[in-house]
Design a protein around this nucleic acid. Sequence first.
DNA 1: CTTTTCACAGTCGCGCGGATGGGA
DNA 2: TCCCATCCGCGCGACTGTGAAAAG
Length: 664
Amino acid sequence: MQLESILPSASINLPKSFYNLSSSESTTNSPASTQIEFQDVDRTDSEQSNGPKKYLSSGGNAMMGEGESDTFSGSKSAPDGRKGSPGTGEDDLSSGRRYNIDELGTDRYFISSPTQPGSDVANPCSLFPYGGQTGTVYSGSNGSRYSTSLHYGSVLPPTGFSSAVCAGRSQFTTGYQFGQGPGCLYPSYPGAGAGLSSMPLPGTPTGTRAQVYLCNRPLWLKFHRHQTEMIITKQGRRMFPFLSFNITGLNLTAHYNVFVEIVLADPNHWRFQGGKWVTCGKADNNMQGNKVYVHPESPNTGAHWMRQEISFGKLKLTNNKGANNNNTQMIVLQSLHKYQPRLHIVEVTEDGVEDMSNEAKTQTFTFPENQFIAVTAYQNTDITQLKIDHNPFAKGFRDNYDSMYTAPESDRLTPSPTDSPRSHQIVPGARYAMQPFFQDQFVNNLPQNHRFYASERAVPQTNGLLSPQNEDATAGSAGAQRWFVSPVQQTGAPTKLDLSYESDYSASGLLPYGIKPLPLQTPHALGYYPDSAAFASMAAGWSSSRSSYQRKVTTGLPWSPRPSPPAFADDQITAGKDKLAEEGQSTGPAGGAASWVDTPHALKSVDSGDSGVYSMVCKRRRLSPGGSSTDASPTIKCEDLSSSEEYNKDNPKGMGYYAFYTGP
DNA sequence: CTTTTCACAGTCGCGCGGATGGGA
DNA sequence: TCCCATCCGCGCGACTGTGAAAAG
């Protein structure tokens, strides 16, 4: 739905805070003023947030730049000896800049919310600690740091957004240049010290606290391991993976604008050298252009946003500064710069006008794994391969595509890239629960064998024979887990970024094979993603027991023995831990699947093993399945499987979750 | 040498129109 | 027989990464 159509005369307003300069921001990292405190919490006592490991995210900034590595490294110095993806160029970075992705998964931080343990926590879809992430504050060229507040104020008049945006999206995007002007670079998380009120006050009628799941987090993590790259072109290129969220905790009747903003993640210019991403001078702070993409369904009610996955699959990235006068919203980025997408949820009036009287109606969410470097051509072949493996539009570049579908079942053991997307993009466990109709809409198009194949793939991973990652995936952790980020609050107290995940695979379990899909209420932007395949197969009546599949696959998987660079390790690890924790805390009758227990251990080996390979394969072209380049494939499968497997599980918890969202 | 741009081929989603089936 | 709903196939446009050429 086009925004214009929704808002004939309505206006989309950026949060007031967006254009409020925050005088409170210091020119340097000032933990005191804008610190995000990450607390490592036990799932069981997430609410209390006791014994917290503290991770600082300066600027209360949800933006996790490379600098966030500081925190990551701090929390865990990669004891496993895992070498991060060469792509990150971590070696070249200053010590503090290491970005250890594993930590995302291994360390969970739950930013306790002063206001509320949200109902969600008690809910079947209760929150779980989220993998560590940190925010980093960067100093702009002018000495201003990446302030937590958006500096649009320097560009926009206080009322600018309201009026300018009034006419609809086009104006919204073109009327103002959200690009940071000089001194306004690296807008950081608006939560702390800034004028942005990301956390509604408890008790206010509409001031419910929202939680956001990154639906396809496993996929994002997979890319993140290698330093995600996003192609930008003059005509605009879609993101892949794309941003996709589940939102909970909104007021059902209140109206919200939901939009994504992409901000510089760090002050550096990057280049891919020697198989690694290394910094190369300073970022261009004068970059102009739209940095915001308003979800086409904005504004809409909380019920609407919570009803289904909020996808930004049509968000396009461009390097053409003048490209935003078109019909499509495009976000203007600069090549070889690192960016951090952020999700904003702004409560507005029925006509889409922001209530200026209440600043506490803006909530911002940032997932560090969403960071990426904008490029005009892929630099890291690992990323290329991941894209090919997961992006349906790139199916034509998959080497084993034909054989995959034509070969006898026994031969179809090669990891199927096509399978993976299902689980991550559109069918994260939660997703299934909430959108069973996906299968109906998307699965039908898939060749039967394809679907079946996807299913098969999922099974093997459950088996312990495969790489650890796989195991985890099977356990249902990776694919199904949902990640929450609670809004950054800007109240006087130190802003805390709330990152937690809900490892409730139940969602997936919700969908027994025969579940009847619900009608799509709104067009889904991601319909073309084949993720549904796995789902389909299950729905189609995958009666075979999981064990049988495992047996079948495990024996034939050529790649199983090899410790592939697992994309999932992070998730899996986290999942495993979370699972354990969850069991103790589980509110649902089914608590957690017993299978979860074994997931954690496997992960490590994977991590440690892949590092060497990666460093050597930079810039290499994708190769035959046996090659290192295909490392991603196995992991992918794992993901897929996990997702599909989730379905198989019968999880009461998930049902609860499902009911929660789909209820009348 | 690095980065960007362009044309290319393959795949996918969507919309359209025709065919089919059921009910009035 | 007519109307309506559903299904199916086709074509178009959109989307993808590739690889070479152009630009800086």
